[in-house]
């Protein structure tokens, strides 16, 4: 709860409106309105790739340049004994929220698409949700981990575009594999990306207490 409160307080108003509120609603609406067994591939790939791109680009508003060499951290946070914990909680909450959104959006689109048909097995639906959501989330998190090294929008934008391509490519490849193997690879890829993104940012914060010249 505290982590979510810290995350909420840390994020900008525009991010809250655009990413936390409008983006998932819009993506789910697209799924509900246009999803069908015939269109699910297009709707799913397009929605998730766009979400991954938006997530990457808008991360700059909250965590822009935090892995950059010049970034010194916030002295207010660093002067508190709870500073490190707060920072870690914010980073983890951001990561968990992102996975939650990807799973939710994917689930809504997949369920809405196949609901009319009713013939798809539960196993197929679950593997579809896991593969697509974790692949997209993983690509977004890898792109975000990279974009946090840039303190300008250009770097983020380039990585946001890259995340679109990687998301579409990986989703297509993993969906071709058998369900279980695809799921395992997608989950490993997604979780690894999250861990890398959080650790990189947290280590940078840790290093800002030291300059290694002693």
């Amino acid at each position: 709860m505290k982590a979510m409160k810290g995350y909420w307080n840390h994020t900008t108003l525009l991010f809250k409106i655009l990413i936390l509120l409008l983006m998932p609603v819009m993506a789910c609406l697209v799924g509900i309105l246009f999803g069908s067994p015939q269109t699910v591939d297009v709707v799913l790939y397009t929605s998730l790739a766009l979400v991954a791109m938006l997530e990457t680009f808008t991360d700059t508003w909250n965590f822009g340049g935090i892995c950059n060499k010049e970034f010194k951290g916030s002295e207010l946070i660093k002067s508190s004994v709870r500073g490190r914990q707060f920072y870690a909680q914010v980073l983890i909450a951001d990561c968990v929220r992102r996975y939650g959104y990807f799973v939710l959006i994917t689930a809504v689109i997949v369920v809405a698409s196949f609901m009319q048909e009713g013939s798809s097995s539960l196993g197929y639906l679950i593997s579809c949700i896991l593969i697509c959501s974790f692949t997209a989330a993983g690509s977004a998190m890898f792109a975000i981990a990279g974009s946090r090294f840039f303190d300008n929008y250009f770097g983020s934008l380039m990585l946001a575009y890259a995340s679109v391509i990687v998301t579409a490519f990986l989703m297509a490849v993993l969906m071709l594999l058998s369900g279980f193997v695809g799921c395992v690879i997608a989950v490993i890829y997604g979780v690894a990306a999250g861990v890398v993104a959080v650790l990189l940012a947290y280590k940078k914060m840790e290093r800002s207490y030291y300059d290694q010249t002693i």
């Binding site: 409160k5 307080n9 840390h10 207010l76 709870r82 500073g83």
Partner: peptide, 15 residues
């Protein structure tokens, strides 16, 4: 990127 409101909220959480 913090606003004055965020400064208040975050300071409250930190101290």
């Amino acid at each position: 990127q913090w606003t004055v409101k965020q400064v208040e909220e975050i300071t409250d959480m930190l101290f």
